[in-house]
């Protein structure tokens, strides 16, 4: 049986798709058979981040409506043979998804894969609720700003009440906090919430801290998940996150301002500012 992990946030633009792509890639690179599903029907993005947009033929809605088989719709990743992508439809809307259809897709994938990563759309409506309904674990992506924290709090409420595990009175969904776009300099200046404030309000375990990084935008535009960029701070932080999701105990990095060495300061460029 696969482990179903939903990547969700409530708020849009906080890095759900970037995180889903990085986590799915990281799990696959560690030898797990992984599939990542884009639930953002109508605003398909995952295929771009994964760099497979030119190979999309069928999508999740086609599979749910019986117009294509799973094997036809899944795209194998170019860089990792353990990784598959199930894209969303760009021409339909969230109402094209049905609970029974999603359940059947997840059950079928469950037999073949170790991990199923569900990339949730923003919001708390049908699309987001379907993405989280069958989850075993949830990665709640949060930026260090008050509106993102409040929306994450709202999603945590849904995770504990509107999921299958909640409705069947089973063990609750295991919730992980993933803080993205963290900039220690701006935290020190008081522009951003610090990690402790976020953890205090959301009261769930931290699974990763991704620093604000130029590497993320570059990776998105190139269609290469940032975790492949193992020289970058964000890439390394996602690798740490994947380790923790797999149960390893990894110390937290990138939390405080790193002093730039004399040479780096003299020559500028690269690195974090």
């Amino acid at each position: 049986m696969a482990k179903i992990i939903v990547v969700t946030s409530g708020k849009g633009g906080v890095g759900k798709t970037t995180s889903a792509a990085a986590i799915a890639t990281g799990l696959a690179l560690r030898g797990n058979k992984t599939v990542v599903i884009d639930f953002d029907v109508g605003l398909r993005n995952l295929d771009l981040i994964m760099g497979c947009e030119r190979r999309v033929v069928y999508d999740l809605v086609n599979v749910i409506q019986g117009e294509a088989g799973l094997k036809q719709a899944m795209i194998r990743d170019k860089r990792s043979e353990n990784l598959h992508i199930l894209p969303a439809s760009q021409t339909r809307d969230k109402d094209a998804l049905t609970l029974e259809g999603v359940e059947k897709v997840l059950m079928d994938l469950s037999e073949e894969f170790d991990y199923i990563i569900c990339d949730s759309p923003a919001g708390i409506e049908r699309g987001a609720q379907l993405a989280l309904y069958f989850a075993d674990e949830a990665v709640v992506v949060t930026n260090p700003e008050v509106s993102s924290v409040r929306d994450s709090d709202r999603i945590l409420g849904l995770l504990s009440s509107k999921s299958r595990r909640a409705e069947q009175n089973r063990d609750p969904i295991k919730e992980h906090l993933l803080v993205t776009r963290y900039n220690p300099n701006r935290v020190d200046d008081g522009d951003m919430l610090n990690l402790e404030d976020i953890r205090e309000i959301l009261a769930i375990d931290l699974v990763g801290l991704i620093p604000e990084s130029e590497a993320v935008l570059r990776a998105s535009n190139q269609g290469v998940p940032v975790i492949h960029d193992d020289k970058s701070d964000a890439g390394q932080a996602y690798a740490d996150t994947v380790s923790r999701l797999m149960g390893e105990d990894v110390p937290l990095r990138f939390q405080s301002v790193q002093k730039r060495g004399l040479i780096a300061r003299m020559f500028g460029g690269g690195g974090r500012r």
Partner: peptide
Amino acid sequence: VRSGQQISASEGDLVVIGAVNPG
């Protein structure tokens, strides 16, 4: 008690063992 949740005791007292978050 998370944002968007409403907990009520229509009679008697309400005791919350935990935080009540914004919203």
